[in-house]
Simulated scan of single mutants.
Amino acid sequence: MTEPARRMLLLAATAAGFGAAGLGGVGCTSDGGGGGGTTASAGMSTRRTPAHSPGSGASPTAPATPTLPTIPPEPPLPTASPWPLARTEVEPLAKASAVRLLEALGTWPRGGQGPGPARERARARSRDVPPARAAHLVSRAAPLLTPAPEATVRVIAAQYGGLAGDRASVLVPLRQWRRAADGSVVDGGATVDVRLTRAPSGWQVRDLHPSCPGRPLARPGPLIRRTVTHDRIHLPPAAEADIRAGHLRPAPLRALLTLAESYDIDISVIHTGHPRNVFGTSRLSDHTRMRAFDVWAVNGRTVIDPTTPDALIDGFMRAAARAGAYRVGGPRLLGRGGEVFFTDRAHRDHLHIAFDSDA
């Protein structure tokens, strides 16, 4: 073989060797022992950091700085929104004293938890709270003082549970948001029967009776399930808990569902958080018998608001009677009243719908 022919053969073999090595690197994977390089795939390139080899002249790669996990900010608590008084209230100062005390007790900033700061908040309401009653009221407000770094109360409604001379009951369903230990927000609430007496300086809070609904039924029936999930029946926390615990009889549950076919209904009180007896009497309340519910707004219009059409409220009361209620109380006496419809000072701000059957 001539020299020129031998050179041509060597060049061809060398070229073929380089081509094979290059093709062998494309698409290969490494489990940690492979050399560095650039791998192309689907138009993207990922650069691997080459491993340091002694004597290669390359500098060792500095270890990457660890990235600390980002801690998400705590969700803010809803703001405390003071409950407004209507200009047509029968006893506006009684409601104001009841509501402002509960707002003060159940709302605190960081560092304000515990019975000591709660007593200070109660004493600060000196116009509403006799100084000697502050410690007692704090002890009665335990459901609103569950330990938490911070909390906010928002009153849903305030209605009269009864008015009798210089004594009053104001029923206050409310919602409370608390900060949990892990930073999350816990949503709860209660209904409080606030007892007041009239003093020379105005109405003062003497006692608190918070709701205590009990445990929900393990197997609630279809009436309960439909009521608590109905998008036109709006339940404050204690009222919903009452229904889930089985504290409303079938007749009022069926009536609620019937009324919700035509109305949006805002419930205030079902069972707990209501006086045991009809206020000022020895007669057992239909709420205690689990046969009644109270309504503070219909179609988003409050009963106490003077701009709410009479026809709306009167129509709801008549529909409740057609749905089986044997006693319907409200801001006006409908027709001749009789044994079904009634009115008094305590029912100017809500509708009382009661039944005489447990079935």
Rank of each mutant, 00 (worst) to 15 (best):
P4S: 03
M8E: 15
L11I: 15
G19R: 06
A20R: 05
V26S: 10
G33Y: 05
G37N: 08
T39P: 08
A40F: 11
M44S: 08
M44N: 02
T46I: 12
G57V: 15
A62W: 01
P63C: 07
P63F: 02
A64Y: 07
P66R: 02
P69Q: 06
P78Y: 06
P78G: 04
P78S: 03
T79D: 10
S81Q: 09
P82T: 00
P84L: 09
R87L: 14
V90C: 10
L93D: 13
A98T: 11
V99C: 09
E103I: 10
P109G: 02
A118E: 00
R119M: 14
R119N: 07
S126G: 15
V129R: 04
R133K: 14
R133V: 07
R140P: 13
A141Y: 04
L145F: 02
L145I: 13
T146C: 11
A148Y: 05
P149F: 04
R154N: 07
V155L: 12
Y160I: 12
R167E: 15
V170C: 12
Q176S: 01
D182C: 07
V185K: 04
G188I: 10
T191Q: 10
D193C: 09
T197R: 14
A199I: 00
S201E: 15
G202Q: 14
V205C: 01
D207W: 06
P210H: 06
P213Q: 00
P220F: 02
L223G: 02
R225K: 11
I233S: 02
D242N: 09
R254Y: 01
T258C: 12
S262L: 13
D264C: 05
I267W: 02
G273Q: 02
G280A: 00
T281H: 03
S282T: 14
S282Q: 11
L284N: 01
S285F: 03
M290H: 06
R291Q: 08
F293Y: 12
V303G: 03
D305R: 06
P306V: 08
P309A: 09
I313A: 02
I313Y: 01
A325S: 08
Y326R: 15
R327C: 05
G330T: 10
G330C: 10
R332S: 11
L334C: 06
G337M: 11
F341N: 08
D344F: 03
D356Q: 05
